[in-house]
Design a protein around this nucleic acid. Sequence first.
DNA 1: ATAAAAATCACCAATATTGGTGATTGTCTG
DNA 2: CAGACAATCACCAATATTGGTGATTTTTAT
Lengths: 211, 211
Amino acid sequence: MISIVLFEDKANMRESLKLLIESETDFKLLEMFPNCKNAKQHILTHQPDVVLMDIDMPGVNGIEGVKIIKSVRPETQIIMLTVFEDDDKIFESIKAGADGYILKKSIPTELLSAIHNASVGGSSISPGVASKVLNAFREKSKASNVNTFSLSKREQEVLELLTKGYSYKKIAADLFVSIDTIGSHIKNIYSKLQVNSAPEAVAKALRLKIV
Amino acid sequence: MISIVLFEDKANMRESLKLLIESETDFKLLEMFPNCKNAKQHILTHQPDVVLMDIDMPGVNGIEGVKIIKSVRPETQIIMLTVFEDDDKIFESIKAGADGYILKKSIPTELLSAIHNASVGGSSISPGVASKVLNAFREKSKASNVNTFSLSKREQEVLELLTKGYSYKKIAADLFVSIDTIGSHIKNIYSKLQVNSAPEAVAKALRLKIV
DNA sequence: ATAAAAATCACCAATATTGGTGATTGTCTG
DNA sequence: CAGACAATCACCAATATTGGTGATTTTTAT
């Protein structure tokens, strides 16, 4: 038996969802609320397995609601319901800790299987949303690797030690060469990265993930 | 009509998938290959709407295959098929450009709807995998903000300029204060971050995302 | 085998940074 | 109101870094 609490401001939507949920024999709709006011209390009282959370609600919105619920009872599985495929809201929700993201226009069975999935720790994401998430994921991982700035192997090593905050002396000791050699390498690194100081080089290296 | 090409090394799996795909009237299975050798050629020849790609294949594996296909024909929608929920492979696939990620143990209808979704640009991710993706997404976004190291507002500003590679002089000029003031702030920053040099501070700041 | 690139070392002068100490002013909080 | 903190500035000495020039030895690639 999967227990469910629903947060949704529009009365007719609440009724539709209620009917849908009650059509499944192993779902139990514990309660419905029109906003996230006192969400903390509601969750602690009802201890639901799964929460269905509308994103756009007056007062305390769904994203805030997720934060509240996850902070008081992290094991609660939360599925976001929304009409929009709005990038910001999607990412905010995910960061807040949402475990699923279903568009309201999805077919009803999709929501039902999302609830089933959530109850066993799986996440369901509507295809259009999933596509945005994957793209964002790629964004964060790319940019790198292409710009190796054709640093030589040794220069790469030196740069890495530089990003650890090592001084010339320490780097020299680490690599068993003279401090002047390190000076040379660093000069070359600066020229390749087009910077003029260690902090700048470190910043560039870390930002472009070439370390 | 959605045209499909399949890469899968195991013959019996190929046959099963073939039967499944051909059960849908609007799918056309153009061709099947046991590995990604000559994937470039195959894709250019067949120009499929959707590619089903097994991850583990001898020779050129599925992840390499994705890179190849996306580089020659980016509009090709690629759905990864796998038996494992292996974190690394999942993230590698996504980075390579995969548009969906379905576990082989999924119910057949899930794969069919994944293909339909892919053909219209949506992504399908099996619940267990989606959950990992969302977690990874959160990882990347969090870590920050918690460790503010109780830097004062001014110290934060100085640190930010430091991560831009500015010298004491330039920072002082930017903030309209004396260079000695900057020196003081930086001394305090070092002590709070527990470092002893600018490169180290920059590295720590960027790694912990406190800038 | 020969040329190019990488890695090594040296020396030097001009700056910059680091780590001290100390002081003033304003703001906020108990 | 006192004490804490933030922000400001100053001075100093010891190091460290930067930016030059120049040179030798390995490695790598053609």
